[in-house]
């Protein structure tokens, strides 16, 4: 399988890192994702927005102790996309070893 057929939304360093973190937890704060991915706040916001627009994640903004809090959670669509992405990679690797 050519690499270009992989889900372009997930086949990006930061977005893949975000989704990999979110499949492992129930929900995570923006600051947690920022710390774990070492991304800048600006870049992280942009990528989160792209994932949200695709329906892969849900973002909930609220206030906690008078500070804004952004919680992110993967959706079932996001989980399915991640699963497909991993399967596509496995498929690609299998093809490569057969060659």
């Amino acid at each position: 399988m050519p690499l270009k057929e992989l889900d372009p939304l997930l086949h990006s360093q930061l977005r893949l890192a975000i989704v990999s973190l979110l499949v492992s937890v129930e929900e995570a704060e923006f600051t947690y994702l920022k710390a774990e991915t070492n991304a800048t706040a600006g870049n992280l916001s942009v990528q989160l927005q792209k994932l949200k627009e695709a329906g892969y994640i849900e973002i909930e903004k609220s206030f906690k102790d008078n500070y804004p809090q952004t919680m992110c959670k993967i959706t079932s669509k996001g989980l399915k996309a991640f699963d497909t992405y991993v399967k596509d990679i496995q498929h690609y690797l299998n093809l490569k070893t057969k060659k």
Binding site: L3, L14, I89
Partner: peptide, 12 residues
């Protein structure tokens, strides 16, 4: 973490 073209091994 910056945006760049990924290969399969990097993805994994």
């Amino acid at each position: 973490m910056e945006e760049k073209e990924l290969n399969i091994n990097e993805s994994l």
